[in-house]
Simulated assay, not measured.
Amino acid sequence: MGDAGTEAGRPADGRDRDAAGRARNARPRDGLGRPLPYGAEGVERQPEGVVRTPRETVAEAQALLDAGKPFHAHEVFEDAWKSGPEDERALWRGLAQLAVGLTHAARGNATGGARLLRRGAGAVEGWAAKRDADRPYGMDLGGLVAWARELATRVEGGAGPVDAGAEAPRLGS
């Protein structure tokens, strides 16, 4: 029998840490990345720290977006931002912000969703302008910027929780 007051699957000391004391974040999550109670069946998490080629990143993120899992797509973009070349980090960070913005919009957080969609659009647009590159790795950055700004406007206007899969952007043409 476990300690009194602990949920199934929750560490006995209440802290979700690895042997070095770092947070493991192993709590189950739903398809939009929201934490579920310990012991609940959640959606399989994306492995962290995976190094992919840029085209693999785009393909995996697109599959997750199409499946209505923008939170998980954000984690794929985050891996690219953390492991990619310094001069591409702003691009991948901006794409991660777009995915998180869609996540918040799908969760019903209009203010946070719109803010992140606009921030991500600005980052992606700024990165592309500095490099005169609108289609790196087959992505349509101009189309993504337009998508993000249009969705932000709708969400701010009360479109309230959106369907993440139906609203998912096409990264490429």
Rank of each mutant, 00 (worst) to 15 (best):
L102I: 04
D79T: 05
A96L: 09
V76L: 07
A80H: 05
T111P: 00
A96I: 07
G143R: 08
W92K: 02
R149D: 09
W92F: 04
G160R: 10
G165I: 04
V145I: 01
V155M: 05
E156W: 05
T103R: 10
A168R: 15
E150Q: 11
A128R: 14
L91A: 01
R135E: 15
A96G: 07
A166R: 15
R118K: 04
T153D: 13
D140R: 13
A159R: 10
L91E: 06
V145C: 01
E125L: 03
E167K: 12
A166K: 15
E167V: 09
D132V: 11
A90H: 07
G120F: 07
G160H: 08
G138P: 12
D163S: 11
R149E: 10
A168M: 11
G112D: 00
L95F: 02
A114P: 04
A110C: 02
A114D: 02
R119Q: 13
V124F: 01
E75L: 12
G122W: 09
R118P: 03
V162S: 10
T111D: 14
L144T: 05
G112Y: 01
G165C: 07
E75T: 08
G142H: 10
V124E: 03
E156A: 09
V100F: 07
E86F: 11
R89F: 08
A121I: 04
R131W: 10
H104I: 01
A110L: 02
H72W: 13
R89T: 08
A123V: 06
H74V: 01
G120L: 05
M139E: 12
G138Q: 13
G158E: 08
R135H: 15
A110W: 00
D134A: 15
R119T: 13
A105Y: 02
R107L: 04
A168Q: 14
E88T: 15
K82C: 10
G126Y: 00
R154P: 06
M139F: 10
A146M: 02
K82F: 14
S83V: 06
G157W: 03
W81P: 00
G157C: 05
R89L: 07
D79S: 05
G113H: 00
F71Q: 08
E88S: 13
E75P: 15
V76A: 03
A146H: 06
A123E: 12
G160P: 06
A128S: 15
A106S: 10
H104L: 08
L116K: 06
H104Q: 06
A166N: 14
K130V: 03
R135S: 13
A96T: 05
G120I: 05
R135L: 12
V155H: 01
W92G: 05
H74R: 13
Y137P: 11
A121Q: 08
V162E: 11
Y137H: 15
G126Q: 01
R115N: 09
L117P: 12
V100D: 13
E156P: 00
W92A: 03
G142W: 08
G84N: 03
A99F: 04
W92S: 04
A90G: 09
Q97I: 07
E78D: 09
P169D: 11
A90I: 06
L91Y: 03
W127E: 04
T103F: 03
A73W: 11
S83Y: 09
R115Y: 07
F77D: 06
P161C: 08
R107W: 04
E88L: 09
G113E: 00
A73C: 11
A99T: 05
W147G: 00
L116A: 04
R131Q: 06
